[in-house]
């Protein structure tokens, strides 16, 4: 199961990097440079990604040609909104290091840091 997940990530990674539509054959050939994988395995996983809405596809000849539904950046941005979003994670689903602060709070934080040993290994603000 885990390996299927890894394969999903590898397929998405290739399509994002190539930045053009690609057939399963092209993906398999590239994956096979590092390890042997069956065509049907890759086809199945590409189909799963399509059903999840991560990949779009259109016919190119007799095969499907796949491309990512959104850019990698769009997904990263969505994850960040989830972490730092306006509705701070309901029920603490995600715990992040430090919440967003107001400029006043930041200044107070900085003066607290400044007041203890300057230039210590902590190497505070720039």
């Amino acid at each position: 199961m885990r390996r299927l997940g890894d394969l999903e990530a590898e397929i998405m990674d290739r399509l994002w990097t190539w930045d053009r539509p690609a057939t399963v054959r092209e993906i398999v050939d590239d994956l096979n440079r590092t390890r042997p994988l069956a065509y049907t395995t890759v086809m199945t996983v590409a189909d799963i990604l399509h059903r999840k809405g991560m990949l779009r596809r259109e016919k190119s000849g007799r095969a499907w040609s796949y491309r990512p539904a959104c850019t990698r950046e769009a997904y990263s941005a969505a994850l960040m909104r989830d972490v730092l979003g306006e509705s701070p994670n309901p029920g603490g689903a995600l715990a992040h290091l430090v919440e967003q602060l107001t400029p006043e709070e930041l200044a107070a934080l900085r003066s607290a840091l400044d007041s203890v040993d300057r230039g210590a290994p902590g190497d505070g603000p720039r």
Binding site: Q100, P121, P125
Partner: peptide
């Protein structure tokens, strides 16, 4: 001090809030 400085840097690099938490 290292953890405290890291917290400051991360908070400083994020978009500031307009309202208090």
């Amino acid at each position: 001090t290292v953890l405290a400085a890291a917290m400051y840097r991360v908070a400083d690099g994020q978009v500031p809030r307009t309202a208090f938490a």
